[in-house]
Amino acid sequence: MRNVVVKDAREAVAGLKDGHTVMVGGFGGAGLPRDTIKAVLDTGVRELTVISNNAGSDESDLSLWFAARIVRKIVCSYPRAAQVFAEQYRAGTVELELVPQGTLVERIRAGGAGLGGFLSPVGVGTVFEHGKQKINVGGRDFLLELPLKADFAFVKGKCADAFGNVTYNMTARNHCQVMATAASTVAIEVDRIVEVGELDPESIVTPCIFVDRVFERGLQ
């Protein structure tokens, strides 16, 4: 029988290498896989490209990665209130690709859904159209937005079963659901692992086909 439960965050991040691209779920603290973030730090990997909505704003989030200087580039929508990141951005030691939030999540969705990109009206006539192909459809201009994929996706769920089916908690779903479709290895940190069959099939948001590893937070 399928069983994707791993012991802890350390096992969840196994195989992560220098130079990898990593998606990290969360909007502010909601949906942020904090145990996983710490475990990545412990691996000693460097030169990561990070795809996330924010760039850290407290002491147990992505700020840890910036403080340890293991991020080469971040693709995100709102890296404000991110002190440690800001210091490195000013120093020119980290690259920023600023993407409007809806475009960011849709690019990830395209990556997970096997699309070659999509046409968006968002950003037309602004700095966000720079370097992008403009395509007119039905008399309206759109920008060609390209998909985003990653080597690893780290997100936070509420409950998971051994198959890897996952539920989320309120607004902690945010980017997590889509990120869990768009990486080679998807590792999900949850509050509780339950028996297969215990989750109401109607409540499962991420079906197990997308998930490679799940673990219960706080056990290490």
Partner: peptide
């Protein structure tokens, strides 16, 4: 002043 820019969902909201 050298601080990183942030856009969030502003551009998406304004278009849609």
């Amino acid at each position: 002043d050298g601080a990183p820019p942030g856009v969030g969902g502003a551009v998406d909201l304004a278009v849609g």
